[in-house]
Design a protein around this nucleic acid. Structure first.
Length: 796
DNA sequence: CAGTGAGCGAGCTTCCGCTTGACTT
């Protein structure tokens, strides 16, 4: 019978460790925290020095019971939770809940799961560090105070079920401010001049592309320059060759893994974490929630062996990396393969891809630099002082690039330096084939992706590896932020070309700009809530708030400050702010008077409603008054804080009557699902035709109605009008529809051969099942929250 | 599936950080 009980946080870890420790040790897991603040009445006794009121989390009762049971025949308990603030608190909660005695309890820590590390830990036990525990309690209490005092203000002033917190509210602020920055940005065009030269080398004509150092502001200046080139001569003045190198990136942390999986595979952060969790649980990779770039000695050695056998000794270079992140607690290793020699792992294609990425990144981190030779050729012009530069880069030794290249966030920057240059020397003469000036516009700041937002949060020290993915989900689930793909707009730019024969040709071209794929956009709720919080809780919404209080937590951890004193210093002024925010006279925040109607002089408001932002013309009706205000919803991309009077009035031009077709009216409008046409009670979505309901004319509308009918005809296999039954071709193959309910057709049946009675039989057989599914659907749709959840699930 | 948006008040929501399943489509 084992005499020792070791408690770790993760069950997967428990399994591995048990193998190392032998018969005398039983290893169990606490599954993270076992106890938390009570959910009722705040869970904090504010009057009594902020005394926390803890209770065992409902889902942990079973685990605690099991731990108590296996405790009965043990003489020593080893608390082996992670070596960070949270881990220390977990150990302390276990100590308290399991009613352990200090004489028979030992606190141990290890940063890597290897036999030597664990044996070393066992032979160097210590006591629970209560200062560190107190720092965690302060962190926990502060987050509860902030979250549970701010959120109710929002329920009252904006909308029920909203939330605010130290982490999520700042995350939303980042998105809101970036959006504003983009709105206010105006692109400036500059003319970039590129020359294409031709050189004859050993009887062969080689091309050389070079860019002018000067960028012109106006077309006039540009043309003046090009004219001067017509009779100029071009001479190489200098050829400079320089070696350069590139070093591999550090092994993955949670945040960098999320970023790379997003850039390379387009995974969402939660998707990446789910896949990594699977790989971890099946023993393929080390722990996936980490801020450390450290690799164990064991990993370093096996990476070395792997690199040397696979690529040769000249590719190996042992490297250690320092964590850059603020507040990194380094309780684990970097994310790496458990066994470096395993080249493939994971059951699904996505897991295989992720594993491969992790393995290559880890190997690359222990490989030599890639070496390049950079060449720059300077070309001078006989009749002016501007110079052309041709840049080239040639790979001399691939090094780590043999296995792995890190992606970057700015996709727009293509690498123009990778051309290999012809062997030229000073005083060589060149002739141009063409010189082209293209107007290039400055780039707006990029919108955040899920992963780049995580990166930003990590840089600010906000949030932890275990909360990045949940935070990103929360801000979307609350409706503060949406992930969206939006089409760009076309923009004109000027192109001015000078060709060999000395002719200058000006033209206007168009390019697509501002297209966004899976980027984060703030919603009106997100904007309104952020503005409100920034106005009333300026300190809390500062980007460095977390970093600042972390310093105070550190003081508590060092025993220099008592935690209730620190909390009191924060809470007293904070609570005053809460009271003030509650007293704000406006019943609802976020309402804005856009102006007065130019004709009727009625007030025009932009408001937030149950169904999103809308414009209201006229005051709310007062009892007994007949007059009702008019309403119209805002369109995507419009916001209540920025919409102009003209844009607001424009919204009331819908629904538009276009005219008649087959003696029935055609109406164009925008509904919940986008712009549509309505004719004879049939709706035709304008989305797929990319038509604008404000401008579409009668002829085009009739055309669309006809195409829609053709498509319908293609879809329809058979119709039994009396019973309102149709056999249709859908996305998943043929099916039967009666009224608004659909029925599956068994695969053995050819749909064209179905008779009315066959259909009725299929419907009758599916009958009871139909009832339960429709019932469930309507039940689920009732609360607004769950229907929006179902939607996002469906999108994925 | 496609026009919505009052106000009252019952009783609900909510934080961040540790961990995995338990759910349904």
């Amino acid at each position: 019978m084992a005499k020792n009980l070791v408690i770790v946080e993760s069950p997967a870890k428990a399994k591995t460790i048990e193998k190392f420790l032998g018969k005398d040790f039983e290893v169990k897991s606490s599954f993270g925290h076992i106890r938390d603040l009570s959910k009722k009445d705040f869970g904090i006794d504010i009057e009594n020095n902020y005394q926390p009121i803890y209770e065992i989390s409902p889902d942990k009762k079973k685990i605690v019971a099991e731990l108590k049971k296996s405790l009965s025949d043990k003489t020593t308990v080893w608390l082996a939770s992670d070596e960070d603030r949270e881990g220390e608190a977990i150990a302390w909660h276990l100590f308290e809940v399991l009613k352990l005695q200090s004489t028979e309890t030992k606190r141990i820590v290890f940063h890597e799961i290897t036999k030597t590390a664990i044996e070393y830990a066992i032979s160097n036990p210590r006591k629970i560090n209560l200062d560190l525990v107190n720092a965690q309690q302060a962190r926990r209490v502060l987050d509860r105070l902030v979250g549970f005092e701010l959120s109710p203000i929002l329920w009252k002033k904006v909308r029920p079920s909203l939330s605010a917190g130290r982490v999520q509210s700042v995350a939303v602020r980042l998105i809101v401010e970036r959006e504003r920055e983009i709105q206010q940005f105006s692109a400036e065009g500059l003319f970039r001049v590129k020359a294409l030269f031709e050189v004859e080398i050993d009887g062969q004509i080689k091309a050389l592309e070079a860019e002018l150092e000067k960028r012109f502001k106006t077309a006039k200046e540009t043309i003046k320059f090009l004219e001067s080139c017509i009779n100029a001569s071009f001479t190489v003045s200098e050829v400079v060759q320089k070696p350069s190198k590139r070093s591999p990136a550090a092994p993955f942390t949670t945040s960098t893994l999320q970023q790379e999986a997003s850039r390379k595979f387009g995974f969402s952060v939660s998707q990446t974490m789910r896949l990594a969790q699977n790989l971890y649980e099946s023993g393929h990779i080390t722990y996936m929630r980490t801020d450390s770039t450290n690799l164990s000695e064991l990993a370093l050695n096996s990476a070395e062996t792997e690199i040397k056998t696979e690529f040769g000794a000249k590719y190996h270079q042992k490297r250690t990396y320092k964590s850059k992140a603020i507040g990194a607690q380094e309780a684990h290793e970097a994310i790496r393969p458990s066994y470096m020699n395993v080249a493939n792992a994971g059951p699904s294609a996505q897991e295989k891809k992720l594993y491969d990425l992790i393995r290559k990144r880890t190997l690359a981190s222990q490989m030599t630099d890639a070496q390049f030779e950079r060449t720059q050729i300077t070309i001078i012009i006989s009749n002016n002082s501007y110079r052309f530069f041709a840049k080239g880069e040639v790979l001399i030794f691939d090094g780590f690039l043999k296995v792995y290249t890190e992606s970057t966030d700015d996709e727009q920057e293509t690498n123009e330096d990778s051309q290999s240059l012809p062997p030229l020397k000073a005083h060589d003469k060149l002739d141009f084939k063409q010189i082209e000036a293209r107007e290039k516009f400055s780039l707006q700041a990029p919108r955040y992706t899920e992963a780049s937002l995580v990166k930003k949060l990590e840089e600010l020290g906000i949030g932890r590896p275990s909360t990045y993915a949940p935070t990103i989900s929360t801000v979307q689930n609350r409706g503060y932020v949406v992930k969206d793909t939006r089409e760009g707009v076309s923009r004109e730019y000027q192109l001015i070309k000078l060709n060999k024969s000395g002719k200058i040709n000006e033209s206007i071209k168009t390019e697509q700009v501002g297209a966004e794929k899976n980027k984060l956009f703030p919603t009106d709720i997100g904007i309104v809530v952020t503005d409100f919080l920034v106005e009333h809780f300026e300190n809390l919404m500062q980007y460095n708030f977390t970093a600042d209080i972390e310093e105070q937590f550190d003081k508590i951890a060092m025993g220099k400050t008592k935690w209730p004193i620190m909390i009191d210093k924060f809470y007293k002024p904070f609570h005053v702010q809460v009271d003030e925010a509650m007293q704000v006279t406006a019943k609802k925040i976020g309402n804005r008077l856009v102006g007065n109607h130019p004709e009727s002089n009625e007030p025009i408001y932009a408001k937030i409603g149950r169904f999103g932002p809308y414009i209201q013309i006229g005051e709310n009706p007062i009892d007994g008054q007949e007059q009702k205000p008019k309403y119209a919803s805002l369109r995507t991309g419009q916001h209540i804080d920025t919409i102009s009077m003209d844009e607001a009035l424009e919204l009331f031009k819908l629904p538009r009557e276009l005219g008649e077709f087959e003696s029935k009216k055609i109406v164009a409008a925008i509904g919940r699902f986008g712009p549509y046409l309505r004719h004879n009670n049939k709706f035709i979505s304008l989305k797929k035709y990319k038509e604008d309901p404000f401008t579409i004319n009668l002829d085009r509308a009739i055309e669309l109605i006809k195409t829609d009918r053709e498509e319908d005809a293609k879809k329809t296999i058979k119709v039994f009008e009396d019973e309102d039954i149709k056999i249709l071709n859908g996305r998943f193959g043929p099916y039967i529809t009666q009224g608004k309910t659909n029925f599956k057709i068994p695969k053995s049946i050819i749909p064209e051969n179905l008779l009315l009675e066959d259909c009725l039989k299929i419907i009758a057989e599916a009958g009871p099942k139909k009832n339960t599914t429709t019932k469930k659907n309507t039940e689920e749709k009732k609360p607004a929250k769950s229907s929006s959840k179902a939607k996002t699930k469906g999108k994925k």
